[in-house]
């Protein structure tokens, strides 16, 4: 009997946290997976179509990619700490971690834009070859997602300003953004492995 009650309580507790909003957002992320899958497929087909232009070995700088990877990985764990604080209802701690995550995301974006503008300035823009077109489309789409994530984070920081506690709705919003942010890190694993590292082997 007692076991039944605890099992029911635990079940209700789980359902309470897996709200339909979070599941719906998860399904959106799955469709986003398909977008990135298509872009990776295009890149896989185009990766040797240099049209006399530079190869990946000539245009990619692994040290910069390594720093970008480190920044994104760090921002994943700082967001995670923010979510732990959010579930403990420590609003100011959560906002601090979210702020750190925002700055790390901004740093990542800054490095990516610098890399892109450097390549374009050297005449290796997306119009140079099919390889570079697919590269800019794939990595640019990821960068666009990071930009959207940063905007979303700024909105949530604004909405939680001056709050002393978080309601269920705000926790739901923070959870959706955490899924989005960790998902972008997973896409980046594929980017640095299949785009950057495989091009310089």
């Amino acid at each position: 009997m007692a076991q039944n009650i605890t099992a029911d309580a635990a079940h209700g507790h789980d359902e309470h946290h897996e709200s339909p909003v979070v599941f719906g957002f998860w399904v959106y992320l799955m469709t986003d997976c398909i977008i990135f899958g298509s872009l990776f497929a295009v890149f896989a087909v185009m990766r040797n179509q240099f049209a006399g232009g530079p190869t990946g070995h000539e245009v990619f700088e692994l040290s910069g990619v390594g720093i970008e990877t480190a920044i994104l990985l760090l921002s994943s764990i700082t967001y995670g700490f923010g979510m732990i604080a959010a579930h403990d209802n420590k609003v100011s701690t959560m906002r601090t971690w979210l702020g750190v995550t925002f700055l790390l995301g901004l740093g990542f974006l800054f490095m990516e834009i610098r890399e892109f503008s450097h390549m374009i300035a050297e005449g290796n823009g997306p119009d140079r070859s099919a390889f570079l077109s697919s590269f800019f489309t794939l990595v640019g789409t990821h960068g666009l997602h990071v930009t959207c994530g940063l905007l979303w984070m700024a909105v949530l920081l604004f909405q939680t300003a001056g709050k002393t506690e978080l309601n269920e709705r705000m926790i739901g919003k923070l959870t959706c953004l955490s899924l989005f942010w960790h998902f972008l890190d997973i896409v980046w694993i594929c980017v640095f492995t299949f785009v950057y590292l495989m091009s310089v082997i």
Binding site: M30, C33, I34, G37, S38, F40, A41, V42, A44, V45
Partner: peptide, 14 residues
């Protein structure tokens, strides 16, 4: 299901 779709998409395309 998504992983399956992506595998079919990428492997099939290549």
């Amino acid at each position: 299901f998504t992983v399956l779709s992506v595998i079919v998409l990428v492997a099939g395309t290549i």
